[in-house]
């Protein structure tokens, strides 16, 4: 039984189909890395899978409330402490704080305001934020932007732990994460061809 099944998906950006005919499945313990040049539609595809925008065509099959989405803006408030930030997202998503704090080694920082953390500590907090959602499918958009080598290693380890625990991850990244078990999908092969469409995705298609 796969956690996520994407069938013949088409997504639109700027009123036009970006990619179409994308199909893949993710089982528990699997990771998939989206590749392709800038602007091919990686972010759009990830946001569509996360449910932030409707697909133009195709189906996305998964259990309700199973996606945790993260982009480089990680939804943390500088004025709140580390513990407050995590507790808030844990309560919203119905997850647990304790394990995430331990896994990311944030115990000593719990009462520090998030604004005072270093970049690496912030990244650890962001990962902990993903963990407290308790959701099996992580959808990550360029999660390693502006990270140093140590943080990238930490990040890869966190994903590996998540996969080992029965989760799955779908991400777009340019950096080699050394996640050998992860599959790769090059989106440039799925670029939408302009042409007649039955249901236009936006003004740019309706009038093309």
């Amino acid at each position: 039984m796969s956690l996520l099944g994407v069938h013949d998906l088409a997504v639109a950006r700027g009123g036009m189909r970006a990619v179409e005919g994308v199909s893949f499945t993710l089982d528990a313990g699997q990771a998939l890395i989206l590749r392709g040049p800038n602007g091919v539609g990686k972010t759009t595809l990830l946001r569509t899978v996360a449910g932030l925008q409707p697909p133009v065509a195709g189906r996305i099959e998964m259990a309700d409330d199973s996606v945790a989405y993260a982009a480089h803006a990680d939804g943390l408030k500088g004025a709140l402490t580390v513990a407050e930030n995590l507790r808030f997202w844990a309560r919203v998503f119905g997850g647990q704080v304790g394990a995430a704090v331990q896994a990311m080694n944030l115990g000593g920082l719990a009462d520090r305001p998030a604004a005072s953390l270093s970049a690496g500590q912030k990244r650890r907090l962001g990962l902990a934020r993903l963990m407290v959602t308790g959701r099996p499918i992580w959808v990550l958009d360029e999660p390693t932007v502006s990270l140093d080598a140590d943080s990238v290693a930490l990040f890869a380890a966190a994903i590996r732990a998540h996969l080992a625990g029965g989760g799955a991850a779908l991400m777009a990244t340019h950096i080699d994460l050394a996640l050998d078990e992860a599959g790769a999908l090059d989106l440039s092969a799925y670029r939408a061809r302009p042409g007649k469409v039955d249901r236009p995705a936006g003004f740019n298609e309706a009038f093309a």
Binding site: G14, G15, M16, F203, N204, E205, A206, F207, A208
Partner: peptide, 8 residues
């Protein structure tokens, strides 16, 4: 809109 679509 047609002009914009063609440019896009």
């Amino acid at each position: 809109r047609r002009l914009a679509a063609l440019q896009a």
